[in-house]
Structure formats: structure tokens, C-alpha cells
Simulated assay, not measured.
Amino acid sequence: MLATHLLVGCTTIDYASLKPGGFKGTLIVMWVGEGSDTSGDGKFVFVPDPRNPLTFTRPGDGPAKVIRPRVMYTDGGSVPRIAQVFKGLNPWGYAPAYMIHDWVFTAHHCIVDGKSNAQYDEVANIKFEDSALILGEAIQGLVEAKLVRRDDVAASAITSAVGSRIARNLWDVEGACARDKVSDTHLAQIELAIPGSTELFSARRGSAPKEIRKIAPSAKPARVLSTLTF
């Protein structure tokens, strides 16, 4: 029943046939605030390590050969709570893969809203169907790196779910760039926790790290929840 529910209305993607992509760098996830009815257990932010930023290299010759996610809000895999009890289906089970997929959506939303920035150029040619393939390639990469166990049922269901009609409707939604922009206060918290970590983000906001820290002088450092280095 769970698999059927997740796959209804989905674009067919043969997860088993996807080749693995390659990760490099360090993933950092921070907690910056309490959750809510819509955001779950907390407000989480992906942060690139300023000395060793996370990158994902796709296999083959598809669009966006190398993807470098920037600072952004993230909720992991957005898996419904009722499904999280099943093996492989929890919002952080494939966290590095989710970060790549989240950034593809985040950058695309800003492109849809007419925002121009070199940060978005590397993903500008990605189509919706590519976004689902990229997640599958990233999960395959985690399996090949032996960071997660092979679970074709969960991985296939997740890959197909991000190709669903619901996900497709979210792909071209307007107004999401401004809505999802990391707040000044949270940027200050991030910068206090890891100095220089907002540098890759500053071009979009027009603020240097030192200026960001001045925005919210009473802010306390964000809490680093997880780091993973490839």
C-alpha cells in the first residue's frame, strides 16, 4: 500500500538502471530555530563548508555536470511522518542526495522568478525530469560509496515520488525565490557558527560575511547538527 501511494501519478523512472554520481566535499546541516505545523521538528539549513564545499558530479553527459549547493533551507526528504517508520523512508536517510535535489529546486525557483546570478547558471538547463534523475543518481552514489545500504524499494519509491505530478506542480511555482530566501537573522547565526560559510551565498544577497554578522548583533550561533565529509 505504501509503495502504491507514493507512486500514484509518478513519471516512470528506472532507478536500478541509473549510474552513480560522485560526491566530494563536506555537508553541514544546522538547526536555526523551532519547528511549526508546516516546518516539522525544526528549521534546518544546509551550509557549504567554506574550505571544502559539497559538490556532486553527475555520470554521463546530461545537463549540470557539476552541482554545488549553496546556503538554503532544507527539510531533508519531506517524507510524510506516517511513512518514516519504514526502512529507508525517513527525511534524512539519504541526506546528501536530498541536499543536491533541494538546491536544484531552490535555484530553479529563482530562475523562474527572473533572478539572474552565476550561482544558478550551472543548473539553468535542468528540466523537471532531470531533477528526479539527479536524485536517483545521487542515491546510487551513496550506495556505491557504502554510506547507505542498498534498498531498491525505498530508493526507487523516493526517486519516483520526486517525479510525481505534485512535485511537477512545485517545479514552476512563482514567488518561491523570495519566500524561501534564508533570513538575515539566520544568515547571521550561520556565520557566527562557521565564519566564512555564507561567502558562497553573499553574491546573491549583496552582503559580505562581516556585514551579515552586523545585521543581527544579538543573534547566537546556529547549532551544527551534522557534518559529513566525502
Rank of each mutant, 00 (worst) to 15 (best):
M99W: 00
G206C: 10
A64H: 12
N169Q: 13
V224K: 13
G88V: 03
D184Y: 06
S226A: 15
Y98A: 03
A145E: 13
V32Q: 04
F23D: 05
C110Q: 05
W92G: 15
I166T: 09
H109C: 02
M99S: 03
P91Q: 10
L200W: 02
K43G: 02
K146I: 00
D75M: 14
R213L: 10
D41E: 11
G62I: 04
A124S: 15
S160P: 01
R51S: 14
V79D: 08
S218V: 06
T106Y: 08
G136S: 11
G9K: 10
L89Y: 06
L133C: 02
E129R: 14
R213W: 02
L7K: 11
N117K: 08
T38C: 03
L54F: 09
R58W: 07
G175M: 10
D180F: 10
R51H: 11
S116I: 04
D41N: 12
G60L: 08
P48S: 10
V8S: 14
I67F: 12
I111C: 08
G136I: 00
R204V: 02
K115A: 09
V224N: 10
E191I: 00
D14R: 14
D102I: 00
E144I: 01
S207C: 03
V153I: 11
I111H: 06
F230M: 06
T38M: 05
L200I: 00
S156P: 06
Q189T: 03
F128H: 11
G62T: 07
S156N: 11
P96I: 00
A64I: 08
W103Y: 15
P96G: 06
W171S: 02
R68P: 13
K127G: 13
S78D: 15
V112I: 12
R58T: 04
I28S: 01
P48F: 03
A124F: 10
L187G: 07
E174G: 09
L2W: 14
A132W: 05
G114Y: 02
L147N: 07
T185S: 09
V143N: 11
I212S: 09
S36P: 03
L7I: 07
D61L: 14
D14Y: 05
G42Y: 00
F105S: 01
C177F: 08
D41H: 09
E137K: 12
A178P: 04
P59V: 05
M72L: 14
A178N: 12
K214V: 03
F46W: 05
G114N: 05
Y120E: 02
G76H: 09
N52Q: 11
A95G: 02
S131K: 13
A107K: 03
E199H: 12
Y15H: 13
A145Q: 14
G77C: 13
N125H: 13
I100Y: 03
I215G: 13
D151T: 07
D49N: 14
G136E: 07
A107R: 03
R204A: 12
R70E: 14
A155G: 10
P69A: 11
R223S: 14
F23G: 04
P209S: 06
A216Q: 07
L142K: 12
P221T: 01
S218T: 13
L89D: 07
A118M: 07
T4M: 10
G114Q: 06
V224G: 09
R205T: 15
F201T: 02
L7C: 06
L6T: 00
A83S: 12
I158K: 04
V143K: 12
W103S: 10
A203K: 15
T11Y: 03
G175S: 10
P209Y: 03
